[in-house]
Design a protein around this nucleic acid. Sequence first.
DNA 1: ACAGGCTGACGTCAGCCGGC
DNA 2: GCCGGCTGACGTCAGCCTGT
Lengths: 77, 77, 70, 70
Amino acid sequence: MANPRKFSEKIALHTQKQAEETAAFEQIMREVSDATSKVPKQHLLINQSLGSYRGGSLPNVNHIGSNSVDLKVGNYG
Amino acid sequence: MANPRKFSEKIALHTQKQAEETAAFEQIMREVSDATSKVPKQHLLINQSLGSYRGGSLPNVNHIGSNSVDLKVGNYG
Amino acid sequence: AGGPIIAEDQARKREMRLLKNREAARECRRKKKEYIKCLENRVAVLENQNKALIEELKSLKELYCQQKTD
Amino acid sequence: AGGPIIAEDQARKREMRLLKNREAARECRRKKKEYIKCLENRVAVLENQNKALIEELKSLKELYCQQKTD
DNA sequence: ACAGGCTGACGTCAGCCGGC
DNA sequence: GCCGGCTGACGTCAGCCTGT
């Protein structure tokens, strides 16, 4: 049941899990972003220029004909 | 070069990446654990009983003959 | 007699089975290939999310430690 | 004449190629199967690490927000 | 029970690419 | 150049599982 024989069901399970995990990932990223955007106390300092840089290059599985979806992560700044 | 033809090289690349990512994962987990173990200010309250519970069931790819290694994550409490 | 006629039917039955299984094998290979692509893509996505989560954890930890010294 | 002898050599050459390719195909199928298992196991590991990182991020965020109200 | 759909494994052919 | 190792794709056989 957890490991079906048909490839269609395996693909369906993986796409479903990927959708759920991506939703949870984006949710926690937004929550942390919202929590850190509210300045700690009343300091009001703009110290968010460096330290939160997200600019990694994407793994790029096949580079052509790989039907890759949702490979890059958004910028939750 | 990034996508070899031989299966041996593909497996080697994946195992290498997995080792690096596991090392980075364990390192950041230890760092966060050490940072949170030092009590904030001088409150000295033991409020770490609930909220940091890590006891998820493991995905269990094949349950037999899957040669799974490093499937479970450690408890960095 | 009716012997050769029955033999012809069995031969056609066999060819039908082979034809069906031929097309099924093609579709099965296609699905298997698609499944491998799905796994590779899923690995890439999880890899990026892991890196992003680690970076976010580092940033939040630094913020937490900095604020703890106040 | 030497015609049949050359034909025998070519036949043995062919059988040798077929035998070699036979064993190579078996090993290739084995490696492919092992590669798929590797991918599935890697997905499972990344999945667990992802969940653990998200939980750690939640806990640290709560600690950060709680301390921010002091 | 029995037929049919999918898949695992086999052997073969064709093709790519690195080394001689 | 050409030759040999690996792999992609094919058709076939055997086997499992489900629906009838």
